[in-house]
Structures are given as C-alpha cells and as structure tokens.
Amino acid sequence: MSNWLGRNRGAFVFALTLLMVLLGLANAWKHDLVSVQWLREQKDTLAALNSAVTIALLIAGAMFSYYRFFRGRTLSLRLELSIDVSVHETPLDKRLHAITVTAKNVGTSTVWNPHPALQIRIHGPSEAVWNINEWQSVDGQTSTLSVIESGEATTFFALKSISKEAWAVTYTASVKADEGDTWFVSKTISNRTGGHE
C-alpha cells in the first residue's frame, strides 16, 4: 500500500486538495457566504483570480517539467560499468585473476572523483569475501582518477590470487561519484583458465 501511495503521491495530493476546495465551497454556500448574486458582483475579482491561478499553474508545470526532464535525465550522471576477468594458471596452488572494471560516462555531465570498489566472493569448499579498494594503472602505479568526462571511458585494473579449490568467483564492482550516485555491476565466473560466466 505504501509503495502505491509513493508512486501516486502527486495524484493523491491533487485529489485531496480538490476535495478540500469543493467541501469549502459547499460549506460557504450552505452558510450563505457565497450566492449567485455575490458571484455576479465579484466577477471581475474572480476573473483576476482565475488569471493568477492559471499563471501559477503554468509556472509550477514549467518547474516540474524542468526537474523531471532536464535535471532527471539530461543533466543526470550516468555510467555504464562492465567487468572483464581473465584467469591464469600459476605453478602454485592458486590461479591469478586479472580484473578489469570499465566505467563509461554515457550521460552529459562530468563524473567527479569516481571511487571504484570491488567485492570478491569465493564459492567453494572455503567460502570467503574480499574487498579491493586500491587499483592499478597500466604502468603498475596506484590509480587515482579525478574525473570522467561525458563520452569517455576509464579502466580500473587489479590482480587477485584465488585458490584452485574454489569452484567459482563472483565479482561485484561499484563506482561512487562525489555527488553521491553509485553504480553497480556483478559477474560470476568459473575458477579455471579461460573461465567464463
């Protein structure tokens, strides 16, 4: 019920406001505060009030359209995230997972100070969860990125050794912007060389 009220809040408020106005007019008519003669005498005032209400509704509609369309879609932050993982054999009892998270800015606004994070969940005899918050750039240095411009994509890279006993690995990546928006993507792969979803 609360979800329905949340989705239809605007229509619900409008219906209650209209009901209050109608009940107020009915009460005024009942107590002879409003009559046909009074309405004839106040026609100029009512015409001016009608114009003022029309202007107020047009302004409210324009503001609603601005926030609904421009702020809600055109100027909103939008990222497309993808995860690519390659699994490599090692001479040890672990396999090396090379994780690449790509964030593409498909919105029209710049994403400032994106902070990537990755949760790794191991499925197998020894279940485990790890978090990666430090990423590497192509040259092996710690990656720090301050902006993703509209239409650009950036890549975050990390390595993780996973025991050969693990059956599969689930990667859940997130990128959080300074504005508070957060995007998520998840992928589960087999823990074998050439592992796939």
Rank of each mutant, 00 (worst) to 15 (best):
D84K: 12
N105W: 00
L49M: 11
G24T: 14
S126G: 05
K94N: 07
F184C: 00
W130C: 09
T110I: 05
L18R: 10
T170A: 02
N27T: 09
S163A: 13
F64W: 13
R192I: 03
S146C: 14
L33Q: 14
K94E: 13
W183Y: 12
K43A: 03
L92Q: 13
S163H: 08
L23T: 08
G24S: 13
V87C: 06
A48D: 10
R40P: 01
F70P: 07
M63D: 11
V138Y: 14
L81D: 03
V147D: 04
S190Y: 09
W112M: 03
I122H: 01
T17F: 08
I122Q: 01
T144C: 06
H31I: 14
T45Y: 08
A166M: 03
I122G: 02
S150K: 05
R192G: 05
I132R: 00
V85Y: 03
Q141C: 12
A28L: 14
T45P: 05
L96N: 06
V169D: 04
S186V: 06
G10A: 09
Y66I: 12
S174W: 02
N50D: 02
T100P: 01
H88G: 05
A56K: 08
R71K: 08
L46Y: 15
E89Q: 14
I122P: 00
T154W: 02
N105E: 02
S161N: 10
S82I: 04
K176H: 03
K94V: 14
S174V: 05
L75C: 04
T108Y: 04
Q119W: 10
A117T: 13
D181L: 03
D44C: 08
L19P: 05
F157K: 06
Q119D: 14
W135Q: 01
L16T: 08
N3W: 09
T182W: 04
H123E: 11
F14E: 12
A153W: 01
H196Y: 10
R9N: 11
H115D: 04
A52K: 13
G124P: 10
S35G: 10
A47C: 07
W167G: 13
S35K: 06
A103D: 02
G194T: 02
H31M: 14
L57T: 09
L145Y: 04
D181T: 08
M1N: 15
P114T: 04
A26G: 12
T193L: 15
M20L: 15
N133I: 13
A173G: 02
A52E: 13
F69G: 00
E89D: 13
G151I: 07
V106K: 08
T110D: 00
A166S: 13
L33V: 15
H88P: 07
E80S: 02
L81F: 02
P91N: 14
F12W: 14
A47V: 13
K94I: 08
A173F: 05
I99E: 01
A128P: 00
R78M: 06
N131S: 11
D93S: 11
Q37N: 15
A56M: 04
